[in-house]
């Protein structure tokens, strides 16, 4: 017997899907922003900080990179709830995502910072720039430019990976789809629709990052090189 697809009843819930997709994007936006800041600070600490700080950051990076996001989220969100520390679920999820993506960003930014040649820093020193100025203008900008494609991949993966956080009760795209499944019983169709929406979001996100790259890296725009 042939299966009869019924997308009609699933698509009736389009507004819910859109609402969920929007939530996913909001979560990804804040986690990316804060995760980038955290990761960059950790990368700085790991490349130039005192020994104890380097070890601390190294430990954080290794622990997070070698355990699943889902376990981290359970540990953090259910754990905090168990000791009575209540917070809005959106906030908890963003924190879990930031802790997670911060560690990956640390490694990528560290590679970028270490790729800056000694001579660049010497030249800036000889021009009289302060340490902070050197870091900001001579190290950070070109380092970020160099690893930008890797960063983009990280953040797109983060957006996709955030789907598992529906398990802690956040109503992002995957979370709302559970509700649609339970009322329509059209599981397969729901997953097809989810796949299409996520794929579209991946493309949109890549496009946005591309445009952002053009905006903040004028050299990339001018020379059209992938660097």
């Amino acid at each position: 017997m042939a299966y009869e697809f019924d997308f009609q009843s699933v698509l009736a819930y389009a507004p819910m899907f859109l609402q969920g997709a929007w939530t996913t994007l909001i979560l990804t936006f804040w986690a990316t922003l804060a995760g980038f800041v955290l990761g960059t600070l950790c990368a700085v600490a790991r490349t130039g900080g005192p020994r104890w700080l380097r070890l601390l950051v190294g430990g954080y990076v290794e622990v997070i990179r070698n355990t699943p996001l889902l376990i981290q989220a359970y540990f953090l969100i259910f754990g905090l709830a168990s000791i009575g520390a209540r917070m809005p679920i959106m906030l908890g999820v963003v924190i879990a995502m930031v802790v997670n993506i911060g560690s990956y960003t640390t490694e990528v930014m560290r590679a970028g910072i270490e790729s800056i040649k000694r001579g660049q820093i010497e030249a800036a020193e000889c021009l009289g720039l302060s340490r902070a100025q050197i870091f900001l203008h001579v190290v950070l900008r070109p380092a970020m430019e160099r690893v930008y494609p890797s960063l983009v991949s990280l953040y797109v993966l983060l957006m996709l990976g955030s789907s598992v956080l529906s398990a802690v009760g956040v109503e992002e795209l995957f979370g709302v789809s559970n509700r649609v499944q339970s009322v329509t019983y059209r599981n397969f169709e729901v997953f097809i629709v989810l796949g299409v929406i996520y794929l579209a979001m991946t493309l949109v996100l890549r496009g946005v990052f591309w445009a952002l790259g053009q905006l903040i890296f004028p050299r990339r725009r001018r020379l059209g090189t992938a660097l």
Partner: peptide
């Protein structure tokens, strides 16, 4: 591109419910 652009979790759902359609 397609399978790197869809969450693993969604792929799990397709793999779980898809074969039922095939009988």
């Amino acid at each position: 591109q397609v399978f790197q652009g869809i969450p693993l979790l969604v792929q799990m759902g397709l793999a779980y419910f898809g074969p039922i359609l095939l009988g």
